[in-house]
């Protein structure tokens, strides 16, 4: 089941589901509603906006220590890489974990995939992650 409901497609090709302001066209992820954060815009209505599946790595790092709860850590903790990815179509920068074991560099092309974030006795919780294109 999704670790966060409604932010990514669970069927078909993996895809982040953002929103778009119907007044000014600004994209948001995580999906935004309420007020548009474009300071020039008075919009309050948003439409669903499936986002580009690919982007380029703007920056990256790795977490080699276990973040404190509520981080849902696998047991035992495994270090993981974080990438800040600039989406090809929207220019949004979206943070995510890289799939396990992948090295990455600034400028690399990556695509969104769904992967296990953690498991408990009854469920496997999935989250979006980034994977190098062609890897």
């Amino acid at each position: 089941m999704p670790a966060v409901e409604g932010w990514f497609a669970m069927a078909g090709e993996p895809q982040l589901l953002g929103t778009r302001c119907t007044s000014c066209g600004t994209f948001f992820f995580p999906p935004s509603d309420g007020f548009c954060r474009n300071p020039e815009c008075q919009g309050t209505e948003f439409e669903p906006a499936p986002l580009s599946r690919r982007g380029t790595v703007w920056s990256y790092t790795d977490n080699r220590y276990q973040p404190p709860p509520p981080y849902m850590s696998p047991d035992p903790f495994e270090p993981y890489t974080i990438a800040a990815v600039e989406l090809a179509g929207e220019g949004l920068v979206v943070l995510g974990q890289m799939v396990a074991g992948e090295l990455v560099a600034i400028g690399d092309e990556v695509e969104v995939v769904l992967d296990t974030l953690f498991e408990d006795d009854s469920n496997e919780y999935v989250m979006w992650k980034w994977k190098k294109v062609g890897a």
Binding site: A3, S59, M72
Partner: peptide, 28 residues
């Protein structure tokens, strides 16, 4: 690591809210 109510719970749960990693992204 400083926990901060600045971050939404989902971000902490997903391991995307540890302050040093933000410093590191900027450092890179």
């Amino acid at each position: 690591i400083i926990r901060s109510s600045f971050f939404e719970p989902w971000r902490e749960e997903a391991g995307l809210a540890a302050t040093p990693s933000y410093f590191a992204l900027r450092a890179q």
